[in-house]
Structures are given as structure tokens and as C-alpha cells.
Design a protein around this nucleic acid. Structure first.
Length: 562
DNA sequence: GCCGTTTTCGGCCCGACTGTTTTCAGTCG
């Protein structure tokens, strides 16, 4: 029985959600959710761990370890099957409606027999929901709006969409008086909603927010939520002298906040979004910055990208946080396309763009001819391009590195012969087709590419496109081992539509000593800007400058590629 | 269900906003 960590985590989550609807003990529900998170964070297959090793993860006790074992061995869980027999699993989709929680779902089901979003919409139309005790016309209307929005099926935003919203909001927010917090600030690849901490007076800001909002969800003097261009935006108000605790609170993650508060309780301190108080909630101390607040808790500053309760608090306690790679460490972009294949900029324009950004180098990595849709280069084109690059390099401050993004063909061979690859300064090998092959087949292909001595980097390793294409079924554990064994780097493709490898895999690779290569895969000038998204993913993967290929100076980079 | 530098029992992060309520439950972040 093949059983992935994702399946195990989903099973635990499912049990938790069904328990929640059945009016279970909320702490028991949380235990299942925590267990699911712990399994999600694992970089090894949970099926390979012993029961003791699973318990040692923390957050997983005897009972959950037994459930994990059962799921690994049988593919299911008797506890889950019992709950499924009792509660229609279709109720779970109702939980995803904004404003509808487990209590409401339970009552809608027991008292009105509602088991699906369609039935819920029908019931609101007939006014059945408003007749429930404790409900009224407003609650019914809100539930109806939520259900309609759910039916329109929203998904998480990519970082490009988030950036566009932030640029729009910048026109109503006072410059320098707010920070975009939440998962955006933590550098996540996808963002559910925008969280903003502002130290403007709500009396002044609320009316301006109302003006640009599609809808005001709620509005108060401490918190306001609006819908803006279809997305939810939450604003928390604070003052400069108490900015620290609010920023920590609103940056999250939620598990990070809970762990931090838990830890403070042991010291007899209570944390909330306003500061740190004594056990009785008295003597509130406020802090202007996050660092000052963390210092009061005997912790060093913890970068937002690490705040996932994935070991960072323990590392901070022992002063073993990694010195994360920063923007200034990056000396160039390791994956760029020119108009020789499907990019829009000429080589000279790219060199100028690199200079403007203060880059030491840019890797020109046009496609191989096998990728016909991208006007890939033939062997002859490549030789000509090489000549042009050499001419431009004579008087360019930004060195163009002659490379390619060679296609990994469906049989695992590459789109250029070895003798051609040997002449190039930098070789990225990427999958562009055959992404739906089964796990073993597609894994063998990328490992074969890793084993080729001329290949320096595996480009966008899983091929995912956020919200549009699932990652290929690659066994990342095997790929990372192969990359480690052959000294091949793995790419963090910095396009906000890819961000591939993803953060957890980056951390696993980094832990095995695999180098990461950040490349924008830019096809248009503005896309060189995307390097920062790749940087954020590297930081979420606990990377230091030593882990990142782009931090090498030109001579050492060329030495590394051989 | 998990957990322990007061604990193997009795806690479990903490607060804002809304609606339908006379004091709070539910949801959310």
C-alpha cells in the first residue's frame, strides 16, 4: 500500500473536521489538526518512521501514532470510517463557506437536513434558515452570500495578484504607516487574504477603505475587513509605540503565535496583540518593534519566513537560527530567456538590464530546439548566440553566462548532445512534457538528468503551475538524494506562478547539502523583478547564503559549474 | 487528544466583531 504523507495528513484533518461538526471537544479537534501539520512538515515518508519516532515529532501522541500507522498500512482508518458512517462527508464543503463554522453546519444538518451547498442555497431562498433559533434575516443573508461566493469557487492568490492588490491599496493607505503582514509577509507562495497592520486613526482610514471596497465585511475601531477587487483584506489598527506585538500577531502563522503564547505562559506571562502582560492580564507592556517584544521573551529576532512552528522557536531559544540569505547576497539571476527563443529582450538589452540591477552575471538559458513551442535553439543557433554573448561581454559590467535550458525528453535523455552541453558555461535541465507520467518513470527522468555530468541545475523540478497544473508525481526524496550524490543544484524557480521547488522541499534539499539556484525564468523585462519571490522561498527553506548558488561571485560560480 | 522546570489531571492563545441577544454564542484571525 503506497501511502504519502499528504494522504496521512489529510486523513487526520478529515477526522478532526468531522469531530468538530459532531460537537467534539475542541482540543481533541486541535490535536488531530496539529498531528496533520506535523506529518505535513516531515521531509521523510512517515510510513518509514517507527511509532516512537512519530511520537517524538511532538504534537503526536500514542493515539494519533496508532492512527498514522493504520493509515500507512491499510490506506484508511477505522475511526474515520466510523465518523463517515455517522456524518455525511459532504458537510465538509459547508465548512469552507465564510461565516459558517462547525456549530452552524451541525445545526443546519440536524435541524434542516442540509448536507450540501446547493441545499443550503435553496433553504436560504425559502427563508428556512432565518427561522432557526438564534438566526435572523441578517444571518441568513450573510450565509447566502457566503454560499454564493463559495459556489463561484475562489482560490488562494499567487504573489503577483497580491502585489497588484497591494499597489492598489497603497493609494488609500498613508505611506510609511502600514505593513502588509500575514502569509504575504511570511513569503508564502500563495496567499489567502491580505492582512495589514496600520497605525493610522481608524476614524480617518475606515471611510477611505469603504470608498474603494466592493463590500465592507465588518468595520470597527480595532479591526476592519473589506472585500477589495474580489479578495478579502483585513486591517488591524495600532499605534507606533505598540506596533511590535500587533505585527507579530498579524504576521502569524497561527501555530507560531500559539507556540509563542504557550511558551510565555510557562514564564507566567500572557501575550496578546497589544503586548505582554502578567498572568492576571495586568501590567501590559507594549513594544514599538517585533525585535523588542521577542527580546522581552528572551528570544532573538525570528524572520517572518521562519514563523511556522517548524522548529524555529526551539532554534531561537538555543541561538541556532540560520543566518538567512538576503537580497544583497544575490549577485545575479541564474535563469533568463532572450529573444533568441521565446523571450522579448535582446541579449544586449538583458546585459543592460543586469547592469541596471547591479548584477555581476545573468545566465542566458534559452530553450533547446526540442521545445518547438518556445522556438528552441538549434545547435547552430547556439553557436551563433555564443559568439554574440562574447561580443557583448567585452564591454558589459554584467557578465552574460552562456547557458541553456535543455529539455529533459520523455525517455530521460536531453535535448542536446553531451558534446554541446560540455561547451556551455551553465546547463539547466527541465521537464516540459510528460509531466503526467507515473512516479517511478518521471522520477527516473529527472534523476538521469542529475547524473549527467554537464547538467548544473534541475529547472522548476516538479513543473507545477500554481492553481493551474499539479506538480509531476516526482519522488522528491529520491531526487534530492541524487542531486546530493552528483553535486547537481535544484532550482527555486522564482516566477510567482511556479515557485518550484516549494519551501518544504527546499528545506529538505538544503538539509542534505544540495545547493539551490534561484532563477526568475524571465521572458519579459519586468519579470527579472521576481527574484525576490524566489529569495522568499529560499528563506522559508532555511537557506543561508552558502546554500544558494547565486551568492557565489562570478569566478567561483564558473569554477563550480566546471 | 496532548502534555508536564509547580502538574499523570486539568488545563489547553487570546481578542474583535456581528447578530440576536439582555449577557452571549459563533466565527474568525
Amino acid at each position: 500500500m503506497e501511502c504519502t504523507n499528504r494522504q496521512v495528513a489529510e486523513t487526520l484533518r478529515l477526522i478532526g473536521q468531522l469531530l468538530e461538526i459532531r460537537e467534539g471537544n475542541p482540543y481533541r479537534v486541535r490535536a488531530f489538526m496539529n498531528g496533520a501539520d506535523a506529518v505535513d512538515r516531515l521531509t521523510r515518508p512517515v510510513a518509514e518512521l517507527s511509532k516512537d519516532e512519530v511520537v517524538a515529532l511532538g504534537g503526536v501522541g500514542e493515539h494519533l501514532a496508532a492512527v498514522v500507522r493504520e493509515v500507512c498500512e491499510t490506506g484508511s482508518s477505522t475511526e474515520l470510517e466510523t465518523l463517515r458512517a455517522e456524518i455525511p462527508p459532504s458537510l465538509l464543503e459547508l465548512l469552507r463557506i465564510e461565516g459558517v463554522g462547525p456549530k452552524t453546519v451541525g445545526r443546519l444538518w440536524r435541524e434542516l437536513g442540509i448536507t450540501s451547498v446547493a441545499e443550503l442555497l435553496a433553504a436560504t431562498e425559502k427563508g428556512r434558515v432565518r427561522r432557526l433559533k438564534g438566526f435572523g434575516t441578517k444571518s441568513e443573508a450573510e450565509i447566502r452570500r457566503g454560499a454564493e461566493r463559495y459556489a463561484a469557487s475562489e482560490q488562494r492568490m499567487n504573489r503577483s495578484t497580491a502585489d497588484a492588490l497591494i499597489a492598489g491599496l497603497a493609494e488609500v493607505l498613508a505611506p510609511g504607516r502600514y505593513v502588509v503582514a500575514g502569509s504575504y509577509r511570511r513569503g508564502k507562495a500563495t496567499i489567502g487574504d491580505l492582512d495589514i497592520v496600520s497605525c493610522e486613526d481608524p476614524v480617518a482610514l475606515n471611510p477611505r477603505l469603504r470608498l474603494v471596497a466592493d463590500e465592507v465585511i465588518e468595520s470597527g475601531e480595532r479591526r476592519t475587513s473589506i472585500r477589495y477587487r474580489g479578495e478579502r483584506v483585513d486591517v488591524r489598527f495600532t499605534t507606533p509605540d505598540a506596533f511590535g506585538p500587533m505585527l507579530i500577531y498579524f504576521t502569524g502563522s497561527k501555530p507560531f503565535n500559539i507556540k509563542l503564547r504557550d511558551r510565555a505562559l510557562l514564564e507566567g506571562l500572557r501575550i496578546n496583540e497589544y503586548g505582554i502582560a502578567g498572568r492576571a492580564g495586568k501590567d501590559l507592556r507594549t513594544f514599538p518593534t517585533e525585535a523588542a517584544m521577542l527580546k522581552a521573551l528572551d528570544l532573538p529576532y525570528i524572520p517572518p519566513e521562519l514563523r511556522e512552528d517548524a522548529g524555529e522557536i526551539e532554534a531561537a531559544e538555543h541561538d541556532r537560527l540560520p543566518a538567512l540569505v538576503i537580497a544583497d547576497d544575490l549577485r545575479g539571476d541564474l535563469h533568463v530567456h532572450s529573444n533568441w527563443s521565446d523571450g522579448t529582450l535582446s541579449l544586449a538589452e538583458l546585459a543592460a538590464e543586469g547592469e541596471r540591477r547591479g548584477y555581476e552575471y545573468l545566465v542566458i538559458s534559452d530553450h533547446s530546439a526540442t521545445l518547438k513551442v518556445a522556438h528552441g535553439l538549434s545547435e547552430r543557433d547556439l553557436a551563433e548566440q555564443r559568439h554574440t554573448i562574447e561580443v557583448i561581454n567585452r564591454d558589459s559590467a554584467c557578465r552574460l553566462i552562456a547557458g541553456t535550458e535543455v529539455d529533459i525528453l520523455s525517455d530521460g535523455t536531453l535535448g542536446f548532445a553531451d558534446r554541446i552541453l560540455a561547451d556551455l558555461e551553465f546547463v539547466i535541465a527541465s521537464l516540459h512534457g510528460g509531466l503526467r507520467q507515473d512516479q517511478d518513470q518521471v522520477t527516473r527522468r529527472v534523476i538521469a538528468a542529475c547524473e549527467n555530468e554537464h547538467v548544473d541545475v534541475i529547472g522548476h523540478p516538479t513543473g507545477r503551475i500554481i492553481g493551474r497544473r499539479e506538480p509531476a508525481a516526482i519522488d522528491l526524496g529520491r531526487l534530492i538524494e541524487a542531486a546530493a550524490a552528483h553535486g547537481t543544484a535544484l532550482e527555486i524557480n522564482a516566477s510567482p506562478f511556479r515557485l518550484d521547488l516549494e519551501d518544504t522541499a527546499v528545506r529538505a534539499a538544503r538539509d542534505r547539502g544540495v545547493r539551490l539556484s534561484i532563477g526568475t525564468d524571465a521572458h519579459r523585462p519586468g519579470e527579472l523583478e521576481n527574484l525576490r519571490h524566489g529569495l522568499a522561498t529560499a528563506r522559508r527553506g532555511w537557506c543561508t547564503a552558502d546554500d544558494v548558488l547565486n551568492a557565489l561571485p562570478l569566478d567561483r560560480l564558473l569554477e563550480w559549474t566546471g
